[in-house]
Design a protein around this nucleic acid. Structure first.
Length: 495
RNA sequence: GGUCAGAUGGCCGAGUGGCUAGGCUCAGCUCUGCAAAAGCUGCUACAGCGGUUCGAAUCCGCUUCUGACCUCCA
């Protein structure tokens, strides 16, 4: 069996995962800013890191998964007048900031649940950790790496860069950045354009502001993650995840702040998922192609021909490696929808199947099935190769289906059969989190009713009364239930 | 403009120095009262041009094209 390897964005290498304090693993993932509705772009990182979280637990680690909620307003654009994003939106909607934040947080939680993402161990909010952030800023000032100007506090990037490699994570050269940002206006307050804000003085009209040693204001964007990660995971922890767009400046700045404040680099493994596109184009507000998750699931967006279920979206995401860009199109989503059904059908069939040796055991077939099961683990260990795992499961699905339909004899050993069963369960249910959305709630009574209908139809068919049997079948299909005639009788499922 | 990624069959997408990825679509077949479902078979690709190599789609260089980041962003 191979060991888990993950691509570390910091070293740009695939590295063997070795926790700092096994069996414990500390994992921090940047959460959403809850000033808007949860959209397609959010689905990618949270599904990706949910699978990592599930897999680490599956491997036996005790994981503390921290994912924050950014509910404090932040300046929109550095160099221009500070704008409190949350407050601005709140004024438009005539809501209290807290009301707005709660509304979008609730939507976010609902969407995460639909996507079958497990809840993090700790979900800290920025506004709930103002004190910690102020303390860290005070510490940075005391250590001489931050300075106060007119009620705002900035991090001294140039000083930091003398002893540290600022830009290593994002592959940037400080001198270039300084040269490139000279044209920006209103850099006046900063000693240098590359410096970033730790604390911003709030204008009187800002709704969200707090008392600090530097007057009324609000925290800079980067400091919250440093403060909260340190508080809950310690000065150095195992994994920090997020979207690639956060590499710079967010994570670069996090490294700088935490390294000075804690005296050592904060993270052992940096992991970044790639971005999504819609019909080949970046999704963004300025492109007018932002699709919220609610629109995705219900199909209420002009770019969508239909709704796609949360698990279809999840499956679609997992069919692509997390470090590649992922393009959402109607055609590819429809393909994913069908593929998912096929996989889950095989999974259900296998779950309900009992071992029966009907024929001689083919040792070649037996070892082939065994190898494919082992492959799943190796593929998952190779930097979360979920796309490959799914391909392998599809391979195995053909066998399962042919056994079920009697198209091929079950020529594997009972031991292999049990391994196969466990592999499907472990990967589909436990690790990838692909639940069957068609089986809901009142399955028991529903099935009893369906068995009755099926038996009536069978009687009709035996009497060659195909008119009746076809009415039953076709009307059920209209009602969203599909009958499947097989060797061992008829089964049904919601379509 | 700077930096960094990609360019794979009808579509989506893995992956790899030599051996069929997989999914969807399409065609044929098997099964079936008919269909659906399922299985089987077929369609076999790696942008272009050089180079390294016994051998490259996989390594190197150049060209073309696309995308991302550099600003709030997942």
């Amino acid at each position: 069996m191979t060991q888990l390897k993950i691509t570390n964005s910091y070293t740009r290498e695939k590295e063997i995962f070795e926790p700092l304090h096994a069996p414990h693993v500390g994992m921090y993932v940047c959460g959403p800013t809850v000033s808007g509705e949860t959209h397609l772009g959010h689905a990618r990182p949270y599904v990706t890191f949910d699978v990592l979280y599930r897999y680490l637990k599956y491997l036996g680690y005790k994981v503390r998964y921290v994912r924050n909620i950014t509910d404090a307003g932040h300046f929109e654009e550095e160099g221009r007048e500070a704008v409190d994003k949350v407050a601005t939106k709140a004024k438009l909607e005539m809501l209290e900031p807290m009301e707005l934040v709660t509304k979008y947080t609730n939507i976010y939680h609902d969407m995460m649940e639909l996507l079958n993402n497990q809840r993090p161990s700790i979900e800290p909010t920025a506004t709930g950790h103002i004190v910690e952030q102020i303390e860290m800023i005070k510490d940075l000032i005391a250590k001489g790496f931050a300075y106060e100007k007119n009620g705002s506090v900035y991090f001294d990037v140039l000083k930091y860069a003398k002893g540290n490699d600022y830009g290593k994570l994002s592959g940037r050269i400080l001198d270039d950045m300084i040269a490139g940002s000279r044209e920006l206006e209103n850099q006046g307050e900063k000693n240098n354009a590359a410096d970033f804000a730790l604390w911003k003085k709030a204008a009187p009209e800002h709704i969200m502001q707090w008392q600090s040693p530097w007057g009324m204001g609000f925290p800079g964007w980067h400091i919250e993650c440093s403060a909260m990660a340190t508080k809950y995971l310690g000065t150095t922890f195992d994994i920090h995840g997020g979207g690639m767009d956060l590499l710079f400046p967010h994570h670069e700045s996090e490294i700088a702040q935490s390294s000075i404040s804690n005296g050592k680099p904060p993270v052992k493994y940096w992991m970044h998922n790639n971005m999504i596109t819609v019909n080949g184009k970046k999704m963004g507000k300025s492109y007018g192609n932002t699709i919220t998750l609610n629109e995705m699931f219900t199909g209420t967006h002009e770019l969508l021909e239909q709704g796609y279920s949360p698990i279809t979206v999840r499956f679609f995401i997992l069919q692509t490696h997390y470090r590649s860009t992922l393009d959402f199109t109607n055609d590819s989503l429809k393909a994913a929808e069908k593929g998912l059904q096929r996989l889950l059908n095989a999974h259900n069939a296998l779950r309900d199947m009992t071992y029966k040796a009907d024929g001689t055991i083919d040792s070649n077939e037996d070892s082939a099935v065994n190898k494919l099961c082992l492959d799943c683990h190796d593929q998952m260990n190779d930097d979360l190769g979920t796309a490959q795992v799914l391909a392998t499961l599809f391979d195995l699905s053909s066998r399962v289906n042919s056994w079920k339909n009697g198209q091929q004899k079950m020529n594997a050993s009972e031991e292999t059969f049990n391994i196969l069963k466990k592999t499907f369960h472990d990967f589909i249910d436990v690790i990838l989190g692909l639940k069957d959305e068609r089986t809901s709630g009142d399955e028991g009574s529903m099935d009893a009713v369906m068995q009755l209908v099926i038996s009536l139809r069978k009687q009709a068919r035996e009497k060659k009364d195909f008119t009746t049997s076809d009415i039953i079948r076709d009307e059920l299909l209209k009602a969203g239930i599909q009958l499947k005639d097989g060797k061992d009788g008829t089964s049904w499922e919601k379509s």
